[in-house]
């Protein structure tokens, strides 16, 4: 069993509030990614949950029991750090056994747990290796095994793959999913990498400036952002100004139905890959613009179209447009996210 509940959690470093009134729940066996840019306070939350940092106010409950008063060593959590932080004076096997040794678990049962974890993390044959003889990926797997062998209610992962290369990161994400399926451990995973969060977790919680802005399944937070900042964080960077009247957003040559209340200043946002480009047709009521930039980014190319209302960013696969070409733009109504303008920072 592994349930975590954070209620009105506020964390301060001196006079500076890093986390403000955070409410978050993790269900048993769930992987939740705490996503946010660097400096948003993600690691601070993990440290508070692990008992390494006292919160200023609020409460932390693990499996329904208050854990605020418990020191790190008595909490039913294990924190896997950004760096593997293996003990250099111990070999792989001894590192994995460290926690069990500290808790007095010895003998056949402990050995069995260690062997199981070694098998799950694919570290067979490396038990006697010194840790400095391992690759970065292997070291992080040892760190995982060392934490998981304690069978914590909640496994806290603080960007554990950030120092690995792209291919290895992908392998480690798969490993995390496999481990979670096999051990059913509840995991709180911190990352600044959107694809990592989406690839690993059941739910994503977005933390911006120390505040939780949206929580939900990856598709929901990505395609249905709660506010302007969330939309911007996920790359929805085209902002069309307008107003909301009678259930419609009215912008420059854009009219979209919306459930939001009427307001004189509103914005409609659209993802760059959702903007469609057409050859410009004279006399058409579609907005038009000129291609002012083409940047190849691998699978997609980013085009900048300069319109009367400002630049529009468009992502396109194998674009056949040329610099300076006049194009027509379409903003599909079902892809536009409408927000009152006051929300925009």
């Amino acid at each position: 069993m592994g349930r975590l509940e954070l209620r009105e959690l506020t964390i301060r470093y001196g006079a500076k509030t890093v986390i403000s009134e955070l409410n978050l729940q993790l269900q048993d066996g769930e992987i939740l990614s705490l996503l946010g840019p660097s400096g948003a306070g993600k690691s601070t939350v993990l440290k508070a949950v692990a008992g390494l940092l006292p919160p200023f106010s609020g409460s932390i409950a693990i499996n329904g029991q208050p854990a605020d008063h418990l020191p790190a060593e008595r909490r039913d959590t294990v924190l896997i750090f950004q760096k593997p932080l293996l003990f250099p004076f111990l070999n792989v096997g001894q590192n994995i056994a460290f926690g069990l040794r500290m808790t007095g678990h010895r003998g056949a049962a402990a050995r069995q747990r260690i062997e199981r974890m070694i098998a799950i993390t694919g570290l067979q044959g490396l038990e006697l290796r010194r840790v400095h003889q391992l690759s970065g990926g292997q070291q992080q797997r040892v760190a995982l095994a060392r934490g998981l062998v304690l069978e914590p209610s909640i496994l806290l992962l603080d960007e554990p793959f950030s120092s690995l290369d792209a291919e290895l990161r992908e392998q480690m994400r798969e490993l995390i999913r496999t481990i979670q399926q096999q051990t059913k451990t509840t995991m709180l995973f911190v990352t600044h990498d959107q694809s990592e969060a989406f690839g690993v977790s059941d739910r994503v919680a977005l933390l911006l400036d120390g505040r939780l802005r949206q929580t939900g399944p990856p598709e929901q937070v990505f395609y249905r952002p709660a506010d302007v900042d969330v939309a911007r964080f996920f790359g929805c960077n085209n902002v069309l100004p307008g107003s909301i009247r009678d259930g419609y957003f009215h912008g420059a040559r854009v009219r979209v139905p919306t459930e939001r209340a009427d307001c004189n200043e509103a914005v409609a946002m659209i993802r760059p890959e959702d903007v469609r480009l057409y050859p410009a047709v004279p006399g058409s009521d579609r907005p038009t613009g000129r291609i002012s930039g083409i940047r190849f980014q691998g699978a997609m190319s980013r085009l900048t179209v300069t319109t009367e209302d400002g630049p529009v960013s468009v992502l396109s696969i194998r674009p056949h447009w040329h610099l300076g070409e006049l194009v027509g733009l379409e903003f599909p109504a079902d892809r536009l996210h409408v927000f009152p303008a006051g929300q925009e920072k």
Binding site: A50, A72, E73, T77
Partner: peptide, 13 residues
Amino acid sequence: TELLEAGATLKAT
């Protein structure tokens, strides 16, 4: 302090 923090979360008093 990181190694000590790792030790603490690994249940070392």
